[in-house]
Each structure stands twice: as structure tokens, then as C-alpha cells.
Amino acid sequence: MLDVLPQVLVSGITLGTIYGLIAFGYQLTYVTSRTVNFGQGEALAVGALVGLSLTPMLGYWAMLPVVIVFGGLYGLVVERIAVRPTLDSPSEGWILATIAFGIVAKNVSENIWGKEDLPFPSPLPPLPIEIGGAFVMPTELLIVGGALLLMVAIELFNRFTLLGRAFAATADEREAAGLVGIDTEKVISGSFALSCATAACAGVLVAPVTLTGPGMGLVLALKGFSAAILGGLTSGLGAVVGGLLIGIAEALTAFYISTGYKEVPGLLILLAALTLKPEGLFGRVLAKKV
């Protein structure tokens, strides 16, 4: 029984990294605009489907950057249509507007790719590698490695470029960011572009182990949101830790208790965290928008 544990952890970490990447995407827009795209699941699915169609033409590796750019453009459209019109009014209209945008995207993609789930070929051979007593599929390594690489790249951009610091400045004090010459509307558009690019990338990464279809993102986006709340919507590191906690808790429950209960511990952890530390494990309290 005991030697199965590493195997269970591997699948928990793989799923958890994807939840973490999705959570990371929520965090990116939350800090700059205090809004998130509740249609992230659809952005993820559309990214995966576009990737599926592009792979025969470009090959897997060349398809990846194209999908990331596509996700970025998708994010610009989401921000322009569903978020910006409601940003300067006290309404919370962006909640419904982003959900509605997701529904439209889902319907459009059902018309293009059909409602059936499609298999996504993995670029790597299905030959398991033994690491620390567990057998790891190369695809799983690609998921974890790709997700971490993307998040590290975005964090480096945020910390070490002037433009990245402008994103952080907008997150801290939007008005003052305007006063030093930062176009904060563009920064918010940019954060949506990055956010949907991470979702689209999460889609192509996870597609080989799930199936690809317009509805594939719904549950993933929910789990990602739980991960973001758990880790704190204001922290990139929190997003990853939140994702891993939920992913591992799920995998353990599915194996040792029952697959039927696998959603329960993640939600219990979330409830406990919200009760004990409402700003999330790594979050900080942000000033409310006046």
C-alpha cells in the first residue's frame, strides 16, 4: 500500500500544477483591476481546441507559442467587451459579463469543433520514467514543467522589467500609477491578455491527459478558482501552493477513500482557510476601491 503513495502524489502534483496555473491567471487580473474573468474555463477550452487544430499544421512545439499569443488576444477581447465598460462604474457587471462571454465562446466553439470530446495526441512517447519510486509519464512532466516555466517567466517579467513594475504599481495604487505616466487602462488590458494566455496554455498542456472539448474547462476553472482563493488572490506563489494542496488532497482522497469523494477535501480545505485566514494563505489585504 505504502509504495503506491509516490504514484498518487505524482498525479496530485500534475493536476495541482494545472489548478495552480489557472489560479495564477485569476491572480494576474485581480491585482490590477480587482476583477477576474469568470469565463477562464472557456478560454482554456478554446486554447486547447485551437492547439488541437494547429498541431497537424505546425507540429506540437511550434503550436505552443501560437496558442499563447492567441490566448493573449482572446484576453484583450474579454477585457474590452466584458470588463472595461463596467470598470469605472460602481457596478459589479463584469461578473455576469465575463460569464456571458464564456458561454458565447463555448457555443461558438461547439459549432466549430462539435460537442464531442476529442483526443489530444501527446507529443511525447507513453514510456513511463521512474523517479523516486513512482512511474511518471513524460506528458506529466511536460505539464508540470511547462506550467512552472510559464509562471516563472511571468514572475520574472513582473519583477525585473520596468513594464512589469508598472503592472505592480497599478496593482498598488492605480491613481498614482496614472500620475507617473502609466496608462493604467492598457495595463489592465495587458493583465487580461496574460491571464487568458496562461489559461490557453493550461488547456493545451492538460489536454493530452483529459479530453479536449468545449466543456473541458468548467471544472478545471472552478478548481483553479478555489486554488486562487485558498492561496490568496493577490499572490502568485499562493496560487501555486493553493493549486498543489487541492490537487494532492484530491488524488489522496480518490485513491484512499473513494473517487466519489475526491472533490470534498479540496472544498473542506478551502472552507477552513476562508474561516481561519480569509485573505488566503499568502494573500494580503488590498485597499478597497473607493
Binding site: 508598472a166 498598488d172 495604487e173 498614482a176 500609477a177 507617473v180 502609466i182 494580503r284
Partner: peptide, 27 residues
């Protein structure tokens, strides 16, 4: 035109140096 707003409105989570660098953002 540079405006030093009421209540400073610094970028609180950023370093002093980053605040200064961003001061020159529009240049």
C-alpha cells in the same frame, strides 16, 4: 506635470528604488 498626491500614494509593495524608477516612467 508631476503631481504629488494627497496622502503620498506610494507604490507600497515596491521598493524605494522601484518607486523612483517608475517616477521617470513617462520620460
Amino acid at each position: 506635470l508631476a503631481h504629488v498626491p494627497e496622502g503620498r500614494k506610494l507604490f507600497g509593495s515596491l521598493s524605494v528604488m522601484d518607486n523612483l524608477r517608475l517616477g521617470a516612467f513617462a520620460r
